[in-house]
Write a protein that binds this DNA or RNA. Sequence first.
RNA 1: CGGCCCGUAGCUCAGCUGGCAGAGCACGUGACUCUUAAUCAUGGGGUCGAGGGUUCGAUUCCCUCCGGGCCGACCA
Length: 576
Amino acid sequence: MSNMNLSEQEQIRRTSVDELRKLGINPYPAAEYKTSVFARDILDNYSPEKNNFQEVCLAGRIMSRRIMGNASFAELMDSSGRIQIYLRRDDICPGEDKTMYNTVFKRLLDIGDIIGVKGHIFKTQMGETTVHVDEFTVLSKSIRPLPIVKEKDGILYDAVTDPEMRYRQRYVDLIVNPQVRDVFRKRTQIIQSMRELFNSKGYLEVETPILQPIPGGATARPFITHHNALDIPLYLRIANELYLKRLIVGGFEGVYEFAKDFRNEGMDRTHNPEFTVMEIYIAYKDYNWMMTFTEEIVKKAALDLHGKTEIIYGDKTINLKTPFKRISMLDSIKENTGIDISGMDEAELIKVCDNLKVEHDKTMGKGKLIDAIFSEKCEHSLIQPTFIIDYPTETSPLTKMHRSKSGLTERFELFINSKEIANAYSELNDPIDQIDRFQDQLKLSEKGDDEAMFIDMDFVRALEYGMPPTSGMGMGIDRLTMLLTNQSSIQDVLLFPQMKPVSSKFKVQSSKEEYMELGIPEEWIAPLQKLGFTTVSKLKEVEKAGKLANDLNGFNKKNKLGLSGLSPQAVEEWLK
RNA sequence: CGGCCCGUAGCUCAGCUGGCAGAGCACGUGACUCUUAAUCAUGGGGUCGAGGGUUCGAUUCCCUCCGGGCCGACCA
């Protein structure tokens, strides 16, 4: 009776599990299954002339079946790809007993099941490289039917594209959309590429706290949590910058971390509440050096992934060959608007914003106004990789003042396809200046800017001991991955993107006892609930006992429950 | 947060101005020893996202809610 909520196909598969057990076949065996080869190796290297791969063993998931009486073809998918397998009854069952083929393979196995096969490779008349199977082993029975995706000549039929299923049930997405697995392999390759480069230069990969008492290093709204034993609030980090700089104070030459950061802000195609940033800090360097290094990182990742610097993103071709264009923020604004805003005060900037129809409000200081103009008027034009350099002081509280331009800082951001990919500075190491800048942030916060930075006095103390001149850079790994794998949504480069939880259907359901108090036989309770009478009060609203009796008898027959029929009179008794 | 669109069988999707819920694949049964979106025959499968309203009658019309997508606002 518990099977009543399952679909027909699920019930059949559960029955198959039982039947396998009755035949002495464990549908979920414990033993190691030693394979000798992957599908890809065979497809790439088999040749009938060499007559190689004459004794192979591989394992994977059955993805399709074509049964033709005493012989069958199926497709087996392992981690490397799909290969066709061929099973003939009399090869599988050389003796009198044909159970393994007729019953186990043809009837009890399904698409989605995981099996191991032993056999040899041949080419079919159609020319397809195929495993001729002599022996197969059930490794895991699937009791939930998989979406069926068919393919011919590269065209997919009934492909699973529903984002709801793809992101919530990523495992299904990965099974039926092999190109998705490829995206995530590439994501890892990108990280490996960067790690290789950093390690080759002797920089140290480190781990810093995710739970922070002061969420510093960036301007963003944090997630807050609570530590019970200490009885203090803790924040999930919005950045790891201040910790990495403490390590430079401590004497490391270069440190880096691939860090998950968390920001309690909106979600859309380019924002997930948790995301990955690579931050690196290197002593005795400045932001000019870091620009060249950043170019090298991006170029190397593209080469390691694609073997060339030219990449396709949507309908755009982007070339990551070095050097990238470098232009100051003010020059970029001049280039795009024709207005030279250098040296303007707040009132003048507000006037420029009004003229350019750039939205602004009272909480915005000089820096934010310039930033608004830039975002509105310049970012869209930055398709090819471009360093925007020398940012206003107000929006860069951790950055060293520019060595020659007043009111500006030594900071750059790398834009590719209008998106910020990296952000870097000549790090501020003057502790007195740092405390002043924090104080300025406090004033912004009093002005109503809810993103102004928290003050971290321990970080200031670290600087007071002396930090070497240092350049630091942060790079958004998710966005870089989107760019290099041609994905338009951040959800497509995160294995498990954040989704709204599906509200568990809050079902009010009466207890068995409540039904039985009305004189309803126990065996009829489940059918009643299935018909929608989930509470006894719903039952009270029934006006025609005859109809209900009819429905119940019909349900009994339809589901082959084998219950003895109900008379309208008996049902009428319940309803009294 | 605002605008538009979507939610129907395990999957992909039809379903007109309201009238007995459909197709293909998948699944069951039967046939078939080199097929490949295998084929042929046949059969079963549904809380039409949830709740309410209008109606003799709602998958269809109206309202509310839930989930998703796209576009804006905000942010990396």
